[in-house]
Nucleic acid binder design. Sequence first.
DNA 1: CGGGTGCTTGATACCGATCAACCCACGTGG
DNA 2: CCACGTGGGTTGATCGGTATCAAGCACCCG
Lengths: 228, 228
Amino acid sequence: MNKSLKLNTRDKNILVKTPFLANLSSQSLYRLLEMVAVSGYEARDVLFRENQSADYFYCVLSGYVRLYRLNKDGREADIRICGPGDTLAECLLYKGETYRYNAQAAEPVTLARFELQRVRDLAEEEKDVAKAIIQCLTTHLMSTMDCVANDRLQTAPQRVAHYLLDQCGHEECASASVRLPFQKSLLAGKLGLAPEALSRAFSSLRRAGVTVRGRVIQISDVSALKQI
Amino acid sequence: MNKSLKLNTRDKNILVKTPFLANLSSQSLYRLLEMVAVSGYEARDVLFRENQSADYFYCVLSGYVRLYRLNKDGREADIRICGPGDTLAECLLYKGETYRYNAQAAEPVTLARFELQRVRDLAEEEKDVAKAIIQCLTTHLMSTMDCVANDRLQTAPQRVAHYLLDQCGHEECASASVRLPFQKSLLAGKLGLAPEALSRAFSSLRRAGVTVRGRVIQISDVSALKQI
DNA sequence: CGGGTGCTTGATACCGATCAACCCACGTGG
DNA sequence: CCACGTGGGTTGATCGGTATCAAGCACCCG
């Protein structure tokens, strides 16, 4: 369920390009790489649970991880979907002893794992590590605030349109094509929708020139999509 | 509309107890206090608008500030309500040139204002400033993630119950009393509800022993409220 | 007394969750 | 080769929750 491995070259190459590590001095980078452990998980494996005591934070190398909470009836709601390069539980570095949500591999996943305490200590010494943490937190905070605003302002088709425009990378083409990086059910959770609602949103976007075939989405008129 | 003042003793006393400044070395504290400006706003004054170029970040000394976005039809949604001690726009320290939302005084307000660039520079020099920034970001991120989870998991009465339990401070009393720190319409926005929905939520909580009189809320049975 | 503001209440409409049925692609084993 | 099961996705019917619009109420202040 959770194979811990030595850091191999391929994983290392991914890891050092990650936002968290990309801008460090060679000194800090070296010390962080010394303390990293890599672990793999199968789809649906649980990485940790809400309220469980927290010793590590993670950086996703490949695959996607779902962060979610449960209400008393056992209904799940996704809070965040973490993909390659994203850090998770980084907010525990300076506050909190326990994880604040459940984390589950949405598919086979490799993660870099750091001991919170050791990174804390390193950040006390090395300014660039503190700065890297600030940047991770900032990015994460901004996207989470966007999420609140979108949840409160947008209907299902608008969220999907917004997501597609985001994915196809702000190029000013008339048409575009997007390949979803994960299952539709995961996208539904990310957007705060039930899978059925996502499906209906896609079909309501057909009139705006959106064609869905499996994971591949064709957008015939980008500017029309912006009007939704 | 925006009186800029010298820092007086009362404001200074509030400011130094603020989470952002509370744990600094006297050296860093001194340098930050040197660059602070205090400004007052009347209710409904706009502090800044989305996409406006950003030079300052703020710390609330008294009153409440609404952060919100608009959709194309002009509908508003609150992203966050900032009260005394909260920082706002702190996420712009390391990323972004423009404000990401509108900010409006919900009532008469005093704010401490810092130039982003000067704080950035100071954080490069002084580790405890960087650490204070990390703590602000962490607190803010956690509460924003909670907000996403609550929006997605809870109904209106549940959100209100949750808020009340939060306010009455986790004491294990059978009954409690809460005084809202601001108008109900502001609370509605904070919880992602229309004012009418908040009103209905309160009246649906009557059967759980919640009595509302103006801003004062009586809770006759705290544990019953937890079951909602 | 008149008018404003904040809040509540009622009627209605809409959006999305939920439940159930079905479809399709794929893999497995007889 | 086909019967079967499984998992992901779509579609339809229904229900519930909340937004919206409109009206009325309570309070404050001039």
